[in-house]
């Protein structure tokens, strides 16, 4: 018989007093990390990473209660699952900048023998990653499982997820979307990176998402819309609002409108930078727009 032994107290790090200006500084450094990582290996996904930077920085530096010492079982900690694993650059940068591992390791991204695989994995034991993602559409199910385990363990911390909007074309997302409200999984906040772009072009052209708010509501979710997902103050406000709506019998969904490539003018608003690395000149142009605030790795 094996029973998990839970520590009575975890050193959960919730930087709840950090102000918006400081968060913006962190975001600037994270954006530098992203373009440098992708440039360093000449592959990876800068567009979605830049678009979700403000969300992930707010989550890890202000909203979530979490412990960078990293315990897989996350007892008493909030948990985040990245379902759209291709935006690994922003995930890795935020994890390292919030203390999960040394930022120097970001230089190994996508290179042989690295823990920073092209898509996140538990296989190389990188602190902060709890599930592999990359093949799309699986993260919401995993998050629901984690949320159910928390309920069984009488652990009232929260589970957060992030999904691409194009990812919603995967059927499994809707299996999970149907399941969570039926089972009152109300310790769950799922965010959709609503940037309107996917590899082959605008989502409206590739396969329309239709009225996403109406869809999630019809499935039984409490939906919050945020128009400016790259405005740090609005992102924080939205996440705090979402937290206040948990525990009321419904899972919470945030439709977060972002701009792919946000923060680097020539990468913004186009699907063209979904999975393309900048050359030396483009890197310099990008870095000129992003103040170095925490020191480059």
């Amino acid at each position: 018989m094996s029973t998990t032994v839970y520590p009575t107290e975890t050193k959960a790090a919730a930087g709840s007093n950090i102000d918006t200006e400081k968060l913006k500084e962190v975001a600037s450094q994270v954006r530098r990390d992203i373009v440098r990582m992708v440039h360093g290996c000449q592959s990876g996904h800068p567009g979605g990473s830049l678009g979700c930077t403000d969300f992930l920085v707010a989550l890890y530096f202000k909203i979530m209660k979490h412990d960078p010492a990293f315990h897989m079982d996350a007892v008493g900690e909030d948990v985040f699952f990245l379902s759209n694993g291709h935006i690994s650059p922003v995930f890795y940068s935020v994890l390292s900048r919030s203390g999960y591992f040394d930022a120097k390791e970001l230089a190994t991204f996508r290179k042989l023998d690295s823990r920073l695989q092209g898509h996140p994995t538990t296989h190389e034991h990188l602190p902060g990653v709890r599930i592999a993602s990359g093949s799309l559409g699986q993260g919401l199910s995993v998050a629901i499982g984690c949320a159910l385990a928390k309920k069984l363990n009488k652990d009232n911390s929260l589970v957060f997820t992030l999904h691409g909007d194009g990812e919603l074309q995967e059927g499994q997302v809707w299996e999970a979307a149907m399941f969570a409200p039926h089972n009152k999984v109300d310790n769950l906040i799922a965010t959709v990176d609503y940037n309107g772009q996917q590899i082959d072009g605008p989502t409206e052209k590739v396969l329309s998402l239709g009225n996403l708010k109406a869809k999630w509501e019809a499935f039984g979710w409490d939906v919050i819309e945020a128009e400016h997902g790259n405005d740090m103050a609005e992102v924080v406000k939205t996440l705090e609002l979402a937290k206040s709506r948990t525990g009321q019998g419904k899972p919470v969904c945030i439709l977060l409108k972002t701009a792919m490539g946000a923060g680097v003018d020539f990468m913004m608003g186009s699907h063209k930078w979904h999975g393309v690395a900048p050359n030396d000149e483009q890197l310099a142009a990008a870095l000129a727009q992003l103040p170095e605030t925490l020191g480059d790795y």
């Binding site: 029973t3 998990t4 919401l140 199910s141 995993v142 499982g145 984690c146 949320a147 159910l148 399941f179």
Partner: peptide, 15 residues
Amino acid sequence: ANMIGIAAGMTIGGK
């Protein structure tokens, strides 16, 4: 598919 994902998630927390 959802079942497999939920099962994977439940292991996080010791199930």
